[in-house]
Simulated assay, not measured.
Amino acid sequence: MRKLHILTLGLLFTFFSSCDTVNQIAGQMGLGTPTDAEINSGLKQALELGTGYASERLAQEDGYLGNQLIKITFPEEAKKIENTLRSIGLGSLCDQVITSVNRAAEDAAIEAKPIFVAAIKEMTIQDVKNILLGADNAATVYFEGKTTSQLEGKFEPIISNSLDKVGATKYWGDVINRYNQVPLVTKVNPDLSAYVTQKAIDGLFYEIAKEELKIRENVAARSTVLLQKVFGYADSQQTGS
């Protein structure tokens, strides 16, 4: 009897531990070909979730600063400024600039969410199908084309105000002034607000591309039956099955 109980418990454990796998398989098999309405709804649902996650994640403290892949550093043309100032013991001033410009980008990030929602609502069924059956970054490319100018218009004043609020403008002015006092250097003064705005948008699209790839490749990321059906269909089309 004891052996029977142990065997029963083992079977139950195996059953429950495999539920996720069963659900994933069910999501990919037997759901049939989605209708145009389901494709439209499913892809838009996925894009709204993905862009929302990306915007919210970047809007958190250290959303940019703590992510080495998108962290905003000195402009390329100002790298020599940073190197020179660090070499004469002013590394802390450079660090203050880097922290403050990333804080400015984090302040702006959440403003991207409604812009993406509006772009998603405007998608035609042909746009949706092209994205669903397109390259792994098809949605990201679409958003870059449709929203970049709006993002620039929305981000720039927020970042400009934030640069003042967090002290970046002052720190940047201090950096430029100290550098321009170094004998024999060529005086420079890159547009900090425009630079941070562009880098903030670049980082945002980088995160959106990650979210897009996740839902295309990770079955577990397809959190509803509709997403399973739509992206399962896309998988079958890509593999020719």
Rank of each mutant, 00 (worst) to 15 (best):
G145C: 09
P157H: 07
E156K: 15
W172V: 00
K146M: 13
E156F: 08
S160H: 10
S149T: 14
V175F: 09
G153W: 03
T147M: 08
G173M: 03
G145W: 09
E152A: 07
T148C: 05
T148W: 06
Q150S: 13
K146G: 05
D174N: 14
I176V: 14
V175D: 00
L163H: 00
S160M: 08
F155G: 00
T169N: 05
F143T: 03
F143C: 08
E156I: 10
I159A: 06
Q181P: 05
R178M: 14
S149N: 14
K146I: 11
K154Y: 01
F143N: 02
G167W: 03
A168T: 05
A168K: 02
G153M: 08
I159E: 04
V166L: 02
G167Y: 04
G173K: 01
G153V: 02
G153R: 10
K170I: 09
W172Q: 00
E152T: 15
N180W: 12
I176Y: 00
V182F: 09
I158V: 15
G167Q: 05
S160I: 04
K154L: 02
D164S: 14
W172P: 01
V166N: 14
K170Q: 14
Q150C: 00
I158A: 03
I159H: 06
F143Q: 05
L151E: 01
K146Y: 08
K146P: 03
E156L: 14
G153A: 14
N180K: 12
T169E: 01
P157L: 06
N177V: 06
S160F: 07
G173F: 01
G173V: 01
S149F: 09
N161T: 10
R178Y: 13
G167D: 07
N177T: 15
P157F: 06
S162G: 11
N180A: 11
T148A: 08
Y179P: 01
D164H: 11
Q150L: 12
G153K: 12
E144L: 14
R178W: 07
K165A: 14
F155S: 01
N177S: 15
F155M: 03
I158T: 12
W172F: 13
N180I: 10
I159Q: 02
N180C: 10
V175L: 15
T147C: 14
Y171K: 00
G153T: 10
Y179A: 01
A168I: 03
P183S: 12
G153L: 09
L151Q: 03
S149A: 15
V175P: 00
P157M: 05
T148V: 10
